[in-house]
Design a protein around this nucleic acid. Structure first.
Lengths: 244, 244
DNA sequence: ACCTGAACACCGTTCAAGT
DNA sequence: ACCTGAACACCGTTCAAGT
């Protein structure tokens, strides 16, 4: 937004005739940050497929080529956008004394972040060596150390939690691209459940059993349940007690 | 391959002049299966980005538009391709009496499948309601029932395992797209480890601790370790004993 | 230094026209 | 019924030309 200059709306290309020094330039210079912010805006509002260099340029009222002066390519733009969201998420993360709750808190922060910005969920799988990825790794592994997991097991335990969190993230990103956006969640899941129950109960006993809990289930709660399950496994294997 | 007809190599468009009845038609009619098979060939050999309707048509020596007679769009093509791979994977899956080993075996089969066909790893996140997805769900949930997990917990436990497996799949798919293809795995990971160790040890103690085990680590073994961790958590929570 | 916008080399998809 | 290939409406990216 920021100081919207009064602008006479010539519907076509805007008044190229006038030139009062520089007052007419309604964009106060492009910048990487401004581009990333606009990209996030598009991604959040219209989804990953709507982020186009042309659309982005239009939103910033500039040419598509101008963006390349500040950003190498689309991959870097996406990476920068998700890094931005991730950084902000980490900034508001409360410090937890208890290691298990620290992991739980981090995991939930990731979940909520991807819930708000689904496109971030796919980004993890694209540039796994990024610094932002490392912050998640540390946010999981640090507490694991404090939990008393032995050195040899640290890597495996950390990777298990990380992969679980990323898996849910990717899954949620996928769900956001789906009919759910058109149809309401409840009826949609009810419909899926209905189809599940039409399968051969002999061949799909579990799917049948679980179908009824599908429409009412809470993704977020199911997500933590999984984290707790992994934590329970870690504690069972490496009993260093201290946790709720 | 199949009965390669002798063909005089006119380098440009191929002899449109001759018309000996129908003997010249070197493709014995298109079909959905043939298209899917060719697509898998391209995906495996050159990666997801190489699968183009034009490239596919060229490989099948037909026009791009012809493919649309047998396949609705690219999404359906990708779905059919991964369904095909998945079906073949399930077909060779050994029956396991012990529920825990059944889960472990299925998980490893998924891992190996994605190792051979990395592009399948991303597909799960795209069409989660597919029948192939349900076969995985059942393959995990069935054994969980036999393991004695109570009904209320069945859904959460199954989803935890599923999300973990999918997460690793997505991650492996991402890794396959990376410099690893150009650089060798070992030096690449050694390089990543080196950069990890350049980070502030105060801020990234875990990353530092784990860096040295990065280059030598075995993805597959780490993957099972995670599955075992989740299984350990399930057994700790719902002790129905019977397992190795 | 930074921006513009046409141009290039692609895409997926459609569709009139052929057999 | 099935196939062909040009055409359409897009992409990401480059680059000469401008300021």
């Amino acid at each position: 937004m920021a100081r919207m200059t009064t602008r006479t709306e010539t519907s076509g290309r805007n008044a190229a005739r006038s030139r009062p020094g520089r007052a007419d330039r309604r964009t106060e210079a492009l910048s990487r940050e401004k581009i990333v912010a606009a990209a996030i805006g598009i991604l959040d509002a219209e989804g990953e497929s709507a982020l186009t260099f042309r659309a982005l340029a239009a939103r910033l009222s500039t040419g598509a080529g101008a963006l390349y002066w500040h950003v190498a390519d689309k991959g870097e733009l996406l990476a920068a956008a998700s890094d931005d969201v991730l950084t902000r998420t980490f900034a508001t993360l409360p410090q937890e004394a208890d290691p298990a709750s620290a992991i739980r808190t981090l995991a939930l922060a990731m979940f909520d972040m991807i819930d708000r910005h689904p496109w971030v969920g796919t980004q993890f799988f694209r540039e796994p060596w990024q610094l932002s990825m490392l912050r998640i790794v540390e946010g999981i592994g640090g507490p694991l150390q404090k939990l008393g997991v032995p050195d040899e097991a640290l890597f495996d335990c950390g990777s298990a939690l990380l992969n679980y969190i990323l898996g849910v993230g990717g899954q949620n990103a996928a769900n956001a691209r789906l009919p759910t956006k058109i149809m309401e969640r409840e009826p949609f899941l009810a419909d899926v459940a209905r189809r599940w129950k039409q399968l051969d109960p002999q061949q799909f006993p579990f799917v049948h059993r679980v179908a009824d809990s599908l429409p009412g289930h809470n993704d977020r709660q199911q997500f933590v349940a999984g984290v707790d399950l992994i934590l329970a496994g870690i504690e069972a294997r490496y009993p260093a007690a201290r946790n709720l």
